[in-house]
Amino acid sequence: MDQFIEQIVTGLSIGSILLLVALGLSIIYGSMGIINLAHGEFVMLGAYAAWVFHTYLGLGLLASLVPIFLVVAAFGWVIERYVLSLLNNRPLDTILATWGVGIMLQQAVRLMVGSELRYVQLPPALSSSMSVFGIPVSSYRVFLFVVSIALFGATWLLMNRTTVGMKLRAIIQDRSVAASFGINAKRVYALTFAYGAGLAGLAGALVSPLKSVSPDMGTGYVVDAFMVVVLGGVQSLAGTVASAFILGELSGGIAFLQNDTVAKAIVLLAIVVLIRFRPEGLFTARVRA
């Protein structure tokens, strides 16, 4: 029984990391419909930003979270403004462009700071472990869980309770009608993309003390993020949350019973089968077209 609870808690922790990484993509892909293959590189930029703030400015990870969000969001804004907005309504070109941007970011980081693994310190206050339902769990993992839920809450409020969110939803439904009501679609798109990129950057910074920081670290995350968003259902924030935790429990559980190689294969297979029979994903937001 203890082992069962331990595994459930582990799954929640894996799920919260997946959610963290997928949340930004859920906004960019789910809401704006942009297939952003550079998402992993935004995650990577966030991790490197954490390293730079720590090594050169002596800022701890927690203190640098807000600046990291702003820096990566600014990157996102520039890329939306000067690359993606020029390719409006051309999905294929957008895929290629974001892929290219991703490669350029990777190589730029490699050229500027070298390709060795980088070190980001675990916040000392969170480096111990604590007891959850009688199970010893790393405090930092509990912290990640709380942060991911909080970020989801903030994103939900932003989308559903603010004017920017309302404008975005209006644009998604019908861009030309929204524009005729005086909504500046360009500006809203750029801001949304920047926000999604910033979230990805935060995710990178937050996972970096548990994992490793290297120029090509984003490749794994972008795959995870797409799996979560596709399974959860595009355009559904709540679906993203549910699917992140389902995938977390599933891969954690199979990894415990079998091993991580098998878990990876089975999870991927399950998603492929599910998409075959339910292309819209597990959850769909009902939108009147």
Partner: peptide
């Protein structure tokens, strides 16, 4: 005896197994 995929970075299930 266990093998994880190259580049794998999530070891929490492995750690549970080590504990048990």
């Amino acid at each position: 005896e266990e093998y994880v995929p190259l580049g794998h970075s999530e070891f929490s299930s492995v750690i549970n197994k080590i504990r048990s």
